[in-house]
Nucleic acid binder design. Structure first.
Lengths: 263, 263
DNA sequence: ACTGAAACGAGAGCACTGCTCTTGACTGCC
DNA sequence: GGCAGTCAAGAGCAGTGCTCTCGTTTCAGT
């Protein structure tokens, strides 16, 4: 689409991408704090002032990287879930969808709906594992979106719309199993939190009991506490090679949420 | 102690403290990224070069603030636990320790031992609440120790010795209830994680079953996932006033660990 | 009490940063 | 073909972390 453009527009788009690529490269080497507009321009063989025609400020460049990171992480997680979903369907016999289509995210969400929770636990594992893997492969980009926010930086609306994709993908994993959650009733939810949960449920998961949603919230925050601790070095003295700690905790949280223990 | 010192030593100590105070003030205003050696020196009416006689580099100044933050947070949590412990003992009748001694941390740890888990759940609440309160009162200092690590900064040994104080305080809360944990057996712990847990247990909590320790690890990471999400704005669309979400989740994790539901 | 050494504060200076403004060259539409 | 809009480049500003030097002050050993 839009292949008919002026040479100037195409050049601008390409250069914008090159700037982001180079900035992402520098980000991976030294972190966000050391990302320098001048260094990016230098590496690209252009004057630093020219770069300001593409990104009005350093923060805008960072914002672009943040948005890309949100997209990449959500894409990684949803495609991992889709793969797990396809595998589960294949082994379950109803293999109308070959496992050779791992790609698209939207397909994964649709498939999760259709199969009505077949292999929800496998999808849960895939989701959590994919988030952790992406975080370990792109630690600085993870830090950009889930670490300390840059000072004085207020996320624009577009950013938080991208940020919400990942929790929605997690809800997509849990929703199909909504009818078969094996969790104890639990304690009554206090009023304010109850209305907050009701608002979420109304928008995104009407069939999910409120207590289950509250448990997903706990698991959701636990996942990122765990990953952040691993990446930021807070597991040094305890669970330093964190693979088994992570896998075991993911399983514990699946139990906690009440996901059926089947394959 | 050590009141007999030269005037130079006393001046150095005092100026060191003033530098840290001013740096902490600037940290609270704009965050670690904006902390400037020159600005600190300017505010103190001295040349920036003079400040380098007290802290060899900006990172060393940050390290000092990090260590102070670890100490302050652990102090805050342990004293809150001690207060809760005292209250529980007072209401239980065995009021040999008046509730008017909230101060010292060591006293709190000792008291937690003696009472053999009386009101462990109240202590759990106090611990989690104190950590959250401190984080909300000192967001930038919290970000300093639990947010994105500064690039190229490798924590010196002294720092991680301070960092371990807080999880040990949490173990002090759980340990007295070790015999009365009401949690299901759970799944078998994989080998590597098992040895990691055994190493922790051997050092700090021999009487705690391994499964219980694994559950504490989950709760421990969940707590910081929750606090980081709140402070860093990731609860914006969901549980934005996070008070009830936090309190409810803390209670859920107490259930998860198996703490008795008594007062 | 005197002296040499260590510590100290101040200032200049280096290399770097984000960002702005001006200048001149180029592109693409009318 | 002209002309408005876009572009890259350079100079420059105010700020940064940090180093070096230069006098001064303070402490400790004799």
């Amino acid at each position: 689409m839009a292949a008919i453009r002026t040479a100037r527009e195409r050049a601008r788009e390409e250069l914008t991408r090159e700037i982001k690529d180079e900035a992402r490269r520098q980000l991976g080497v030294e972190g966000a704090q050391q990302l320098s507009v001048r260094a990016v321009a230098r590496e690209l063989g252009m004057a630093s002032s020219a770069l300001y025609r593409y990104f009005p400020s350093r923060d805008d460049l960072l914002t672009a990287l943040i948005m890309d990171a949100y997209i990449a992480l959500a894409e990684s997680a949803t495609s991992a879930v889709a793969q797990a979903q396809a595998r589960a369907q294949a082994t379950a016999g109803g293999a109308d969808l070959g496992q050779a289509s791992p790609g698209r995210a939207a397909a994964g969400r649709a498939a999760a709906h259709e199969a009505a929770g077949l292999g929800a636990r496998a999808c849960w594992r895939a989701f959590c594992g994919a988030v952790r893997d992406w975080a370990r492969e792109h630690p600085h980009e993870y830090a950009l979106i889930y670490g300390t926010p840059v000072p004085g930086y207020h996320a624009p609306q577009e950013t938080i719309e991208l940020a919400v994709r990942l929790p929605l993908a997690l809800l997509d994993v849990v929703r199909p199993a909504a009818g078969r959650l094996e969790a104890p009733a639990g304690r009554p939810v206090p009023p304010v939190y109850s209305t907050q949960l009701a608002s979420i449920a109304a928008q995104y998961a009407p069939e999910l009991p409120q207590a289950a949603l509250a448990r997903v919230m706990v698991a959701w925050t636990q996942l990122f506490g765990m990953i952040s601790f691993e990446l930021f070095g807070h597991l040094a003295g305890s669970a330093d090679p964190a693979d088994e700690f992570f896998a075991y905790s993911v399983e514990q949280m699946a139990d906690f949420v009440g996901l059926p223990t089947g394959a």
